[in-house]
Write a protein that binds this DNA or RNA. Structure first.
Lengths: 140, 140
DNA sequence: ATCCATGCAAAATGTTTGCAATAGA
DNA sequence: TCTATTGCAAACATTTTGCATGGAT
C-alpha cells in the first residue's frame, strides 16, 4: 500500500481494512476514469455490494477519489493526491480518455474568472471532447 | 414556442407533441442547471415518467439539452443553442450556480491544449467550485 | 392512413438502510 | 475489549422496456 494511502486512512481515523485496501487497488489499476458501476462490479467478488458503495463514500469524504465526467457518463478515479492535478480530453469516437496537465497560462485565465466574480475557487475541472489524433486518421 | 425549438424539432424529423413542448417549457423555466430527478418530478403531473425519460434522451440527441455537473450531482439544462455558450461556477456553501462566459484568452489556452494533442475539439466544459462572494462575507 | 409517441405496468438496474456478526485498533 | 466495519436481505430509487392505444403529419 502506498504510504500516502496509509497516511490518509490514519489522519481520517479510518480502519485500515482489507475491503478498503482491495477497493483502493482496483481504483489504482484503472488507466482511465471509469464508471461507478464498473468499480462496484470489479469489487463484487471480494466484498458485498453495499460495502463497495460505502467505501466509495468514505473515500470521497477523505479525498481519496474524485468524480470526473466524460460526456454523459459519471466516472470516478483516484484523486489529485495520487494522480496529480490534471484534466481530461475524451474522444467521442473511440471513448479513450487522455489526461493532460494544465499550463500556467491556463491557470492564470481561471484565476481571472474567479477574480471577476469575487469567488474563492477551491477546485476546478475541465473537459475537452472531440476526436483524438488516432481516430481522425482512421476515417470509417 | 421559440422558433428555434420548432426548427430543431422539424430538422430532426421529430413530432411536435404536447409532452415535448411541456418538457421544454419546464427546462426553460429553470434559472440554473437542475437534476434529472427534478425535471422528471416537475413533468410528472403532465406526462408519464417513462415519457419524460424518453424525451430527455430525444432532446439530448437533438442537441436541445446539455448535461452539466455541479460537484457530485449530474444536472441538465438547455443547450448552448438556447442559453448561449457558457460555463459554471458553483458555490459549495449555498449551492448557487453562476454562469459565466469564457474570455477570448481562455479559449486560446484551450486551443493550445487541443493542438498539443492533435485533438479536434468539438466541445468543452469547465466548472469552478468554491465560495461565492455572498457566502464568504457571511461567515457562519 | 401511416407511423411516431405515449401510457401503463413490469422488469431491470442502481443505491441505501437496519441490524446482527465480525474484524481492526 | 470496544468500536468501526462488513454482510445480508430488504427497502428504496432510478431508468428502461414491451406492447397496446392514441396523436401527429
Amino acid at each position: 500500500m502506498p504510504p500516502l494511502y496509509t497516511k490518509i486512512i490514519k489522519d481520517n481515523h479510518l480502519s485500515n481494512t482489507k475491503s478498503r485496501r482491495t477497493l483502493f487497488k482496483i481504483l489504482n489499476q484503472q488507466s482511465q476514469p471509469v464508471s461507478i458501476r464498473r468499480i462496484v462490479n470489479n469489487a463484487l467478488p471480494f466484498m458485498n455490494k453495499s460495502t463497495a458503495y460505502r467505501i466509495l463514500n468514505v473515500f470521497d469524504e477523505a479525498g481519496i477519489i474524485n468524480l470526473t465526467y466524460a460526456g454523459w457518463k459519471q466516472t470516478v478515479e483516484l484523486s489529485d493526491t495520487f494522480k496529480g492535478h490534471h484534466h481530461h480530453i475524451s474522444c467521442i469516437d473511440c471513448g479513450q480518455i487522455i489526461a493532460f496537465e494544465e499550463t500556467h497560462d491556463l491557470v492564470e485565465q481561471l484565476r481571472l474568472v474567479s477574480l471577476k466574480y469575487q469567488f474563492k475557487a477551491t477546485s476546478h475541472s475541465l473537459e475537452l471532447r472531440g476526436i483524438c489524433a488516432h481516430c481522425s486518421q482512421n476515417i470509417t
